[in-house]
Amino acid sequence: MISIWFFIGISLLVNGALILAAGIYELVNPPAHPAIVLFNLHANVWWGACLLLLGIVYSIKFAPKRHA
């Protein structure tokens, strides 16, 4: 059976990639009037990257064939 941790890895990987992509887009094309406070910290870039990395680790470590 596929491990629950693999599903969690996939979830973190996809969400991390989407958040990182959104963050990089905003970094390259910053809005004139940011809708959030602390926009300058670009949280979606570094938090998206953290989730993406964690997702990659989980997805590989608990990949069905490898885990079996």
């Binding site: 969400n15 989407l18 958040i19 990182l20 992509a21 959104a22 963050g23 887009y25 905003e26 940011p34 809708a35 959030i36 406070v37 602390l38 926009f39 949280a43 979606n44 938090w47 998206g48």
Partner: peptide, 15 residues
């Protein structure tokens, strides 16, 4: 959530 979370992070928070 709306104060700190921009595109992507907001979606994850709502999710």
């Amino acid at each position: 959530l709306a104060r700190y979370c921009g595109p992507g992070l907001l979606g994850l928070g709502v999710t």
